[in-house]
């Protein structure tokens, strides 16, 4: 009864494009941006829908919801397919740029164990900065050409940085700045807005239907979905960054993908990471 009520509220939130304050809808005014209440309701929706899934396990995507697949994954994790990418990332990370500086010089704590703090809102720029974006800015600041956001080099680097942050809970901050709140809100709107020929929103698959099959694949829950990034996908026979994942999500629903690291994608990543606050970084991950 209770679960059903929450589900219906969620749908109402989707359709109306108003705040998805499912549990808190009675107390929060519908047009007030309240990320903390959102995150609480978002997480409660998933824990109510999947009472048998342990909270930390949501970062394991479809493997948290399907026993047969989980076994195959555990078998693969014995010697994971992202191993080579991870090693390449470690090497590249330590290799100095032409000017002698390294990635470590661009990041707090030398870039290690900090994945959980990205994306963050840069109050000087007034925009969201993702890890992939920060890496390319670091390259450009040191006279190097930026990497493609969807190719192996970026995936290797983020794989290594995620690996050094494994187990650290997402700790995304939204400063008390109307621009930050707006960026969050924009990301959220993007997440719940239907688009493309299939008229799917991100939420259609990853909020309404996680654990269900879409054609042959089992859908991952939106909660914790970025914690495992970047991922080795068997379907790709290779690694993919968050940018690559978002672009393919759009094209799979026959929508027009945006430019990687466009404002919309950055805001989307901000929203999606924030509502997974508290869940541990598990990347790099392996997925079908």
């Amino acid at each position: 009864m209770h679960a059903r009520h929450i589900f219906l509220s969620a749908i109402a939130a989707l359709v109306g494009g108003v705040l998805a304050c499912v549990a808190a809808s009675a107390i929060a005014a519908p047009d007030k941006i309240d990320p903390a209440a959102d995150a609480k309701a978002f997480q409660k929706y998933f824990t109510d829908k999947f009472p048998q899934v342990k909270f930390e396990d949501f970062v394991n995507g479809p493997y948290s919801m399907n026993e047969d697949m989980r076994k195959q994954w555990e078998e693969k994790e014995q010697f994971p397919p992202y191993e080579f990418s991870l090693e390449a990332g470690k090497e590249v990370f330590a290799t100095p740029f032409g000017n002698g500086k390294t990635y470590a010089d661009c990041f707090p704590n030398g870039g290690l164990g900090i994945r959980q703090n990205y994306p963050y809102f840069d109050e000087k720029e007034g925009k969201v900065v993702t890890l992939e974006l920060a890496l390319n800015r670091c390259r450009e600041a040191n006279g190097e050409a930026p990497y493609s956001y969807v190719d192996d080099e970026m995936a290797s680097l983020t794989a290594y940085m995620a690996f050094t942050s494994r187990g650290k809970p997402f700790d995304i901050k939204i400063p008390n700045d109307p621009r930050a709140l707006q960026a969050y809100e924009n990301g959220k709107r993007y997440f719940y807005t239907r688009r493309g020929q299939l008229n799917f929103s991100c939420a259609t698959c990853h909020v309404q239907s996680p654990g269900e099959r879409i054609r042959a694949e089992v859908l991952a829950p939106a909660l914790g979905i970025l914690n495992a990034m970047p991922i080795y996908r068997s379907e790709w026979s290779g690694m993919g960054t968050i940018s690559r994942r978002l672009v393919t999500c759009n094209s799979q629903t026959r929508a027009v993908p945006l430019e990687p690291q466009s404002d919309e994608y950055r805001d989307l990543e901000y929203f999606l990471s924030y509502v997974s606050n508290g869940l541990p970084i598990s990347g790099p991950g392996a997925r079908p």
Binding site: D68, Q72, W73, E75, S234, E235, P288
Partner: peptide, 14 residues
């Protein structure tokens, strides 16, 4: 071997 291979490219079999 799994009941359903998550992807035919990589099927763990022992």
């Amino acid at each position: 071997a799994p009941e359903i291979a998550e992807n035919g490219a990589v099927v763990p079999i022992a």
